[in-house]
């Protein structure tokens, strides 16, 4: 894969990179850092990508690991007294405040699975590969996500 091909594929997945990283990190600065790290890692590991058709799931998998690393680093800082930043308006990726609040209220692992399936459109078998969890776990997280979202919307109604 040459450089222009790599650039084309990354930009093709830009919306996914934005939505997935923002849904996990809830902060645009951290999301940019995670995407930056993921792009660098992906470029250096291009040799391990078996087929171009898997690029999207592969890049998303790398991004999610980078986001988790960011979360761990943030948690360490919070433990020694540094306050986590408040979400400013530019850190809100949602048009609908209602849906945004409902998604943010989901536990992180469930939220990630929900975003990957219902927003990004990945089938269960792709999510299994991205998150490196069994298929049954993907389905149970999606099922739980639907229940929790339904509860929230029922409450608001």
């Amino acid at each position: 894969m040459n450089n222009s091909e790599f650039e084309r594929l990354v930009l093709k997945n830009e919306q996914t990179l934005y939505r997935v990283s923002m849904s996990i990190l809830k902060n645009e600065a951290d999301a940019q850092d995670a995407v930056h790290d993921a792009v660098l890692i992906a470029y250096t590991r291009l040799g391990s990508l078996k087929k171009e058709e898997y690029f999207s799931t592969w890049l998303t998998s790398i991004l999610i690991n980078c986001c988790k690393k960011q979360l761990r680093m943030k948690k360490r800082c919070a433990d020694i007294g540094e306050a986590l930043p408040d979400a400013a308006s530019r850190d809100n990726p949602y048009i609908s405040v209602e849906i945004g609040e409902a998604l943010n209220a989901l536990p992180e692992k469930i939220r990630t699975a929900v975003i990957l399936h219902y927003v990004e459109g990945y089938p269960v078998k792709d999510i299994k590969r991205i998150l490196k969890i069994p298929e049954g776990t993907v389905k149970s997280r999606l099922s739980r996500g639907r229940e929790l979202l339904k509860e929230q919307f029922d409450l608001k109604a």
Binding site: F6, H36, Y94, I95, V114, L149
Partner: peptide, 27 residues
């Protein structure tokens, strides 16, 4: 659940710029 996809804003230009800069840095 069908509403979720349309719940997100488009990618902000500053974010898009950051992605392009990351690609250049990698290369």
């Amino acid at each position: 659940m069908n509403n979720l996809k349309s719940a997100f804003k488009p990618v902000p230009e500053r974010f898009s710029y950051s992605v392009r800069e990351s690609i250049k840095e990698a290369e």
